[in-house]
Every structure is written in structure tokens, then in C-alpha cells.
């Protein structure tokens, strides 16, 4: 871009008698240079988006041609008890996940920001699950949760505690899934928090210490407010990712063809790819998008009250 601007300004001086042609030329170059990106954007995003909007107005089994049904799909989603159940499960997973993720990752970041030994080693250790395939994570944790042969229930049994049937009972399955989600994602938030912590100038703490502020006061009055932009960013993406949970419930909570803890994305998968109702599945996907959008807008609205950009 800058090269084009340079050459065009030099030309501009020389051929100032033809400004219109020159401006057109500049625009042409501009379009040409962004064309690859825009073409990719159009093909992989806009067309797909437009097609999915149209397909949500049809019934389509992917094998024969779509049949136009107007807004029937949208009306059916509103009345769909299975969708509400899936949404309830998703929220039950998302709320504790978002909150606990922030708490644990901040605690980890604070611990690993101090001068402990093997700091780099611990950072890598906690970040590792982020780099691991979710399906592999789900498979391993499924073994850990095994009600009869798994180590978790083995330990509970030796302590004389009840041994829950973790993954087949929807109530305990929510807890089990949240634990795995946390385990696999706090490392990511931790790294972002660490970056946020390191951006806070040391002088603030030194000055506060001179003024007699204790460590809790320094945390509350310096760390917390100056981390609010980071916290805000992490809570927004935390909500977005949590509402899209799929792979873990697919791997962990399915029994044969049934799932005791279907989430919204799992329900989309089931309707589209198992029950041959792609039009309906796409409609549910649009509902999910709307829900995520509403949550995100609320968060952006609320941020004015608590996020501190300095």
C-alpha cells in the first residue's frame, strides 16, 4: 500500500494537470491489491452466509433439492422442546465455565508472574492442554471418569465417598464437562492475563508500596482495574466459545446414538447430519448466532461501567 501511495504522490506532482485520471488509477490499484482477500472473503464467507440464510427458509435433506417453506423453520425452533433442552444444557455449561475460567486463569497468571522457580516450565505445562486435540482430551477424560474402572471413582471409593456415574447422569455430566473445559482452556487465558500483568508498569506498585499499600490493596486497586481490558476480552471470547461447545460432549457424553447432554451445536449436528434436516439445523445455527450476538452486545454495553482503558 505505502509503495503505491509513494509512487502516486510523485506522479501527482509531475502530472498535476490530470488529477481525475490519476485518482482513478490509484483506486484501480487499490482494488487490485485487495482483490485476493476480498475474493476469498466472498467465496468462503459471504456466499456461504447468504446460502445458509436462504437454506434456513427451506427443508433440505442434502440429497434432493431444497423445498421452500418460508419461516416455518424459525417458528418451529421457538416451539422446539429439544432445542430448549439443548440451550439449557449449553447455558448450564457456559455460565460456570466462563466465571471459573477467569478466576482460575487469573490465579495461575498471578502465581506464574511471581519469581518462583521453574516458572517457564510451569507456564508451558499449563498451556499444553490448549495445544492438545479436544477429541483426544475427551477420550482420555472419559476413561478417567469411568464409573467402574476409572481412577477418579477409584480414589473416591477408597476415601469412602459416593462414586457418581459421571457421564451418564446429565447433572454430574455438566460438572464433568465443565472441569474438562476448564482444564483445557485456562492455559490460554493464563497467557493473555500474563501479558496483561506484564504491561502494568512496576512503578505503580512501587509507588503504592511507598504509600503503605499492602499486597491485597495493591492487587485490588492496581492489578484488578488495570487488567479490566484483558478481563473484558477474555470474558467475551469465553462466552462465545462456551456457547459453541461440541467436541467434548460429542466424545464424552454420548451413549450409542443418544446423548444425555446435548448442547446447541450438538443438536445442530444431529439434526443436519443424522436426521437429514439441514434446513432446520441451519435455522438453529442462526438462532445460536443471534444468542451469541445478544450476549456479546450486552457485554459491550456493560463494559463502559467497569472496563478501564488508560
Amino acid at each position: 500500500m505505502s509503495v503505491v501511495e509513494l509512487t502516486s504522490t510523485t506522479r501527482h506532482r509531475r502530472r498535476s494537470f490530470r488529477p481525475n485520471r490519476q485518482a482513478r488509477n490509484e483506486a484501480k490499484w487499490g482494488y487490485l491489491l485487495i482483490a485476493p482477500m476480498m475474493i476469498g472473503f466472498a467465496i468462503f464467507f459471504l456466499i456461504a452466509l447468504g446460502a445458509s440464510l436462504l437454506l434456513s427458509l427451506t427443508t433440505w435433506d442434502m440429497l434432493s433439492s431444497p423445498v421452500w417453506v418460508g419461516f416455518d423453520n424459525y417458528l418451529n425452533v421457538v416451539r422446539d422442546a429439544e432445542f430448549r433442552n439443548a440451550l439449557g444444557n449449553t447455558v448450564a455449561i457456559a455460565v460456570p465455565n466462563v466465571v471459573l475460567r477467569l478466576v482460575f486463569s487469573l490465579a495461575l497468571a498471578l502465581a506464574l508472574n511471581s519469581n518462583i522457580r521453574f516458572r517457564a516450565f510451569y507456564r508451558v505445562l499449563f498451556f499444553m492442554p490448549v495445544l492438545t486435540m479436544p477429541v483426544a482430551i475427551g477420550t482420555i477424560w472419559k476413561w478417567l471418569y469411568d464409573p467402574a474402572f476409572g481412577p477418579i471413582n477409584g480414589a473416591l471409593g477408597r476415601l469412602g465417598l459416593p462414586r457418581p456415574e459421571w457421564l451418564s447422569d446429565p447433572k454430574t455430566a455438566v460438572i464433568a464437562v465443565v472441569v474438562v473445559l476448564l482444564w483445557s482452556s485456562v492455559g490460554y487465558d493464563m497467557i493473555i492475563f500474563l501479558a496483561g500483568l506484564q504491561a502494568i508498569p512496576r512503578d505503580y506498585y512501587d509507588a503504592a508500596a511507598l504509600d503503605g499499600a499492602g499486597s491485597w490493596q495493591r492487587f485490588r486497586d492496581i492489578t484488578v482495574p488495570l487488567l479490566t481490558p484483558t478481563t473484558f476480552f477474555l470474558s467475551v471470547i469465553g462466552v462465545i466459545f462456551s456457547l459453541q461447545v461440541f467436541d467434548l460432549v460429542y466424545v464424552m457424553t454420548r451413549i450409542d446414538q443418544s446423548n444425555q447432554l446435548p448442547t446447541v451445536v450438538y443438536y445442530i449436528y444431529e439434526e443436519g447430519f443424522r436426521n437429514f434436516r439441514m434446513g432446520y439445523a441451519i435455522t438453529v445455527a442462526w438462532f445460536l448466532l443471534a444468542i451469541i450476538l445478544v450476549f456479546t452486545l450486552i457485554q459491550f454495553r456493560l463494559q463502559r461501567r467497569w472496563v478501564n482503558y488508560t
Binding site: 466472498a42 452466509l49 440429497l63 434432493s64 433439492s65
Partner: peptide, 16 residues
């Protein structure tokens, strides 16, 4: 463009 393209995409689906 998106509208036209998606209309194309729809008619381009397998017409069996």
C-alpha cells in the same frame, strides 16, 4: 453480490 451468489449456489445444488 452475496444475494446473487447464494441464489446461484441454491440453483447449483444437485438437481436429482
Amino acid at each position: 453480490a452475496a444475494g446473487a451468489a447464494s441464489a446461484l449456489a441454491l440453483t447449483g445444488l444437485p438437481q436429482t
